[in-house]
Simulated scan of single mutants.
Amino acid sequence: MTTGTEEMLANLTKLQLNNKRVARQAVDEGAQLFAKNLAANTPVGETGEMASSVETSGFKGANQGLIEKDIGYNQSVGNRVHYPDTGTIFQSAQNFVEQTINESTPQVQEIYKEHIIKGLNL
């Protein structure tokens, strides 16, 4: 059983090395959950295009031994989304990306924990 963050990260690395299929499932489920939460927390605005432009990349880092995905906004909206998130001199910050990170972290850690237990037979 995992007790601390360091042990969980060590077990996650073991999972990436020993059971790549389960590690990919864990990363995929965590990325989908985060993308869903990000789309829900993103302000809709007049056109609604910011919330509908949340995307998840394919798996990255395989040639370096990492299993990861990027979650964010597509190119048409990505360069503008930081204005409502961080604010301007005329608009106060809404901090929806930080809110999503804080909201999703425990949920994603729970997904990783379940997959570590299943993949490493702990």
Rank of each mutant, 00 (worst) to 15 (best):
L33P: 13
I67A: 15
N63V: 07
E114H: 02
E110W: 07
A23H: 08
D70G: 12
T105L: 00
N79K: 09
K69H: 07
Q91P: 04
M1D: 07
H115M: 09
K20R: 08
K69E: 10
F90I: 14
Q91K: 12
T2D: 13
V77P: 00
K36C: 06
E7Y: 08
T88F: 14
A10D: 01
R80D: 04
I116T: 05
V54T: 01
L17N: 13
I89D: 10
L120A: 01
Q107P: 14
V77C: 00
I117M: 13
R24D: 09
L17R: 12
T3P: 04
T88K: 14
E29R: 02
S76D: 01
Q94W: 10
V81S: 11
N95E: 03
E110Q: 09
G72W: 09
D85N: 12
R80W: 12
N41V: 10
T86P: 13
G30V: 09
Q64F: 00
N19W: 08
T47A: 06
M1H: 08
G4A: 00
L38G: 03
T88C: 12
L33H: 12
Y83E: 06
G72L: 07
V108Y: 02
H115P: 08
S53R: 10
A10C: 03
S104M: 07
I111G: 02
M50D: 04
A23Q: 10
G45K: 03
